[in-house]
Structures are given as C-alpha cells and as structure tokens.
C-alpha cells in the first residue's frame, strides 16, 4: 500500500514533555542522541507461512507511549504482525520474513538476543495463560529469569506490578495460592502484571479481552489507558468499539495488507478507504 497514510500524527496534550510525537519519518536518530518517538518502525515487511503470503509490504511507525490498535477481520494478518514484533513467529515452522522491523532504531531481525527482545517487548495472549504456579511465582518468573534474586527486590517488583494492574487488593492475601484459582479476568490482569514485572518498553496484547466478560473487559481497558504513556501498547482486537474506546492510533488490515493507518479519531470519524468504512460500519467482518 501507499506509505503516505502512515504520516498522520496528531499532537497529543498528554504527551506533555516528550514532544517527540511530532517528529515524523526521518527521526531515526541514534538512541544516544534522542530516542525516536516511534517504538516500532516497520519497513517493507513481507511475511510468508510456507507459500502463503500472510503480510504484504507492511509499513508503519508505531508511536511511543501510545496505544496502537490493529483491527481487521479474522485472517487479515493483524495477529501475525503482532507476533513479528517480539519474534514469537520464530516458533512457527516455515515462517519467513523480509523487510525490517526496528525497535527504537534497532533491527530486531538482525543480530540481537531474542530473549532480551522479549524482555523489552512483553506480550499478553488471547487466552489468559498464568503458569500453574502460585500468584507470586507467576510474577516472579520474569524477574528471576533476568537475574533478580533478592527476596526484597522480588517482593517489591511483585507489589508494584500488581498495583499497576489494579489487582493488588484482590490478591495480596493469597500470593502463595495457585494463580489458576483466580477468575478469568483476574488471570488476564495477572498476565499483564507478569509482563510488567520485567519492565518492558512495549506491551503487545493479542485480543486480550475476547475470552472475558464485559466487566473484566472494562477493567482491562481502563488499565491499558492508565498504562499508556509509561509503556507503548499495541493491541490486536476484534472489537471495534474497544479500539475506538482506548486507542490513540488504529491500523486496519485486510488480507495481509495494511489498508489504512491513522489516528483512531480520524479513522472512525472519516475513514479514507471504502474498505475501512465497510468494516467499521459492520458491513463485513
């Protein structure tokens, strides 16, 4: 598609001091000079599963500290794109990509440590997947993986992560109890807390509320809005209202192509492409 649609960037008052949001395409300065305002720069990305061309020439820049929603009908490639961002697609046999994906200017398909990448880019899955361990050990798993040993530090990380995900009061008295005893919504917030515990820069969420009831969904949406700013958030969602409610930017995908990418406000008020309009008005999907 045309790369031009990518450049719609809106100055957001809540960005406050950062002010880099207005620096557009050519801001790929070195990180030591100034951090670019994009968490991810995706350049000419093509992805194949065997012979199947799943992503076609995707180009987009995802903004730092904002919520970017990826929407589109099933099979449009939005989850696939999400998985390329922390290289979970490495697990899929026959998956091949061309093009560049840069995280703060660094090509994540170059010579990098994938485990470090996944520490920097956390992921929350569609189905809540707490480990069959205690609540405490679930959150502690990530920090322990990355070398945090002291009980004191772990306790602090666990409390902070659980407070940040607004679940602390619900679980503080049963940290040693199995995480699988929690309700679905609590499990998903625990999974977000688990992702936060390794201090990521970006959080990817793959339809995080599609298995949850409306009340739990509302809590998670509120939580994501609170977390944005501190973290860059990229969320795949089937639910257009959800994208409209929480995201700053929205990208619409169809059959592996990015059809349109603009501020959520603009996208839902004045979609530029006929196909986007058809989708968000519910004419297909």
């Amino acid at each position: 598609m045309n790369g031009g649609a990518v450049d719609i960037i809106k100055k957001d008052p809540k960005e406050g001091g950062h002010g880099f949001a207005g620096v557009a395409r050519h801001s790929e300065g070195r990180a030591d000079i100034q951090k670019p305002a994009h968490c991810f720069d995706i350049k000419d990305l093509d992805l194949y599963y065997g012979d199947f061309h799943a992503l076609k020439d995707v180009r987009m820049e995802m903004e730092k500290g904002r919520i970017t929603a990826l929407i589109g009908p099933s099979g449009c490639g939005k989850s696939t794109l999400l998985k390329t961002l922390n290289r979970m697609n490495d697990l899929i046999e026959g998956c091949r990509i061309t093009g560049d994906v840069e995280l703060f200017g660094e090509n994540i398909y170059g010579n990098i440590d994938v485990n470090m990448l996944r520490k920097r880019v956390g992921m929350v899955f569609q189905k809540p997947n707490p480990f069959p361990l205690s609540i405490y050990d679930n959150i502690a798993f990530g920090p322990r993986t990355h070398g945090v040993k002291s009980r004191y530090d772990l306790d602090e990380i666990i409390e902070t992560s659980l407070r940040d995900t607004a679940i602390w009061d619900e679980v503080k008295d049963r940290l040693k109890k199995p995480a699988l005893d929690l309700s679905g919504g609590q499990q998903q917030r625990l999974c977000i807390a688990r992702a936060l515990a390794v201090s990521p820069e970006v959080i990817l969420l793959d339809e995080p509320t599609s298995a949850l009831d409306p009340v739990s969904t509302g809590k998670i949406e509120e939580l994501l809005i609170n977390l944005s700013g501190k973290y860059s958030i990229i969320i795949v969602t089937h639910n257009m209202q959800q994208a409209a409610r929480i995201s700053d930017m929205t990208a619409f995908f169809l059959l592996g192509e990015m059809i349109e990418y603009s501020s959520t406000e603009a996208m839902f008020a004045r979609p530029e492409d006929k196909r986007t309009e058809d989708y968000i008005t519910g004419r297909f999907g």
Partner: peptide, 20 residues
C-alpha cells in the same frame, strides 16, 4: 500457551521447559 508465555517473558527454551 504455558511455553509461549514463558518465552514471551524472555526466558530461553530450556528455562521455559524446566521451570514451566
């Protein structure tokens, strides 16, 4: 999805297998 959850936290293959 347990395995994927562990990998997504930056754990290596063996750590994911033995600890999760």
């Amino acid at each position: 999805h347990y395995y994927e959850g562990a990998l997504a936290l930056g754990a290596g293959h063996y750590r994911s297998v033995f600890r999760v």
